[in-house]
């Protein structure tokens, strides 16, 4: 140990920045020169995970493309809270059309850039989980299939939060939403439905698919940068906790994203050409209960005598993820 160089920097690479690291080794977010793609004054709720995730991803994309970037946005929270006309929070080239057509519009922007010979300008499509896994799904699958040169980013908060917290195909089982009330023998959202979009994207054999959370900035930024090294259709799925829809404290946004990953309930991995190439292994494993308890949408699992049977089924989902992707912590 005495012979090796010191590669230990107090907070290592867990914190956003680190005064002990060289500038090149710090995150985009640690820099005062970051784009702030999504500017202050937006009307997102206190502690919005999506606002945070969008700035993280787009600032990284701006650095990776040298600022030559066009973002196409589907309808959803992110669009509504950022652009009440005539104000905008976007400090990048940004376009909104409809809820369901963002991937198609992004395809169009990419085609236009190609026609103009502007290969240097890159295109990002972005939507919430509703715009991605439900309403925009046909257009997205077409964009994948045609191999259009777009990075599509889904900010997944597991429901239609903007319209009053309705269930989407990304809502987890047992979660209470306005359309999956916590009543009856099987309260909340049902088991066995919904879509695993990262795996569907992988099935299209596109060059790059990855998942990330707002709790691991280094991982998220690296994946955006990696995505930008490929041409063709790419997909990034970012878990962004929603204090409103999840019934969580606004201060807990990052913590919940961390617990989702550390419990295995949300697997963080990346895949190239349909094959998993890397996983973010769990560092301090927790049971799903620790992740579920702080969220009011799961309160019925713990009220009174609770529903340990349902918690156990959710734990099985987490365990299956750990098994499938090999997320178990490294042995000492």
């Amino acid at each position: 140990m005495t012979e090796t160089r010191v590669h230990f920097y107090q907070v290592g690479s867990f914190a956003v920045g680190n005064r002990l690291l060289s500038d090149a080794d710090r995150t985009v977010q640690a820099s005062r020169e970051r784009t702030n793609s999504l500017d202050a004054g937006h009307r997102a709720c206190q502690g919005c995970g999506e606002a945070l995730g969008a700035r993280y991803a787009l600032d990284a994309a701006m650095r990776a493309t040298g600022g030559r970037l066009v973002a196409v946005n589907a309808t959803g929270c992110l669009e509504v809270f950022s652009t009440p006309f005539p104000e905008t929070s976007w400090r990048i080239a940004w376009l909104h059309s409809l809820f369901g057509n963002a991937p198609a519009v992004a395809t169009g922007v990419a085609a236009a850039m190609r026609a103009k010979g502007r290969d240097d300008v890159r295109v990002v499509g972005q939507a919430g989980d509703g715009g991605t896994v439900d309403i925009g799904f046909g257009a997205l699958s077409g964009m994948f299939e045609r191999h259009d040169d777009v990075l599509f980013i889904c900010y997944d908060n597991e429901g239609y939060m903007n319209t009053g917290v309705q269930r989407s195909a990304a809502t987890p089982p047992t979660a209470r939403t306005a359309t999956s009330e916590a009543v009856g023998a099987d309260p909340g959202n049902v088991f066995g439905q919904g879509k695993d979009l990262p795996r569907i994207a992988m099935a299209h054999d596109i060059p790059y698919v990855a998942t990330a959370t707002v709790a691991d900035l280094h991982d998220l930024e690296r994946k955006v940068e990696r995505a930008m090294t490929f041409r063709g259709a790419r997909y990034l799925h970012v878990l962004v906790p929603c204090p409103l829809g999840w019934g969580a404290a606004s201060a807990d946004t990052v913590r919940l994203a961390r617990l989702a990953a550390e419990s295995g309930f949300f697997p963080v991995f990346e895949a190239e050409h349909g094959v998993v190439t890397g996983v973010r292994r769990i560092r301090r494993r927790v049971g799903v209960e620790e992740y579920l308890r702080p969220q009011r949408r799961f309160a019925h699992l713990f009220a009174g005598e609770g529903r340990p049977d349902l918690v156990a089924r959710l734990q099985l989902i987490a365990d299956a993820n750990v098994e499938r992707y090999g997320l178990a912590p490294e042995e000492e």
Binding site: G17, L20, D39, C48, V254
Partner: peptide, 22 residues
């Protein structure tokens, strides 16, 4: 570097990064 810097800012940029409102 094992010091946790308890109670005193050591400029890790976390607050600067995690603020959704810049």
């Amino acid at each position: 570097r094992r010091c946790l810097s308890c109670g005193n800012c050591f400029e890790c940029d976390n607050c600067f990064g995690v603020c959704p409102d810049n």
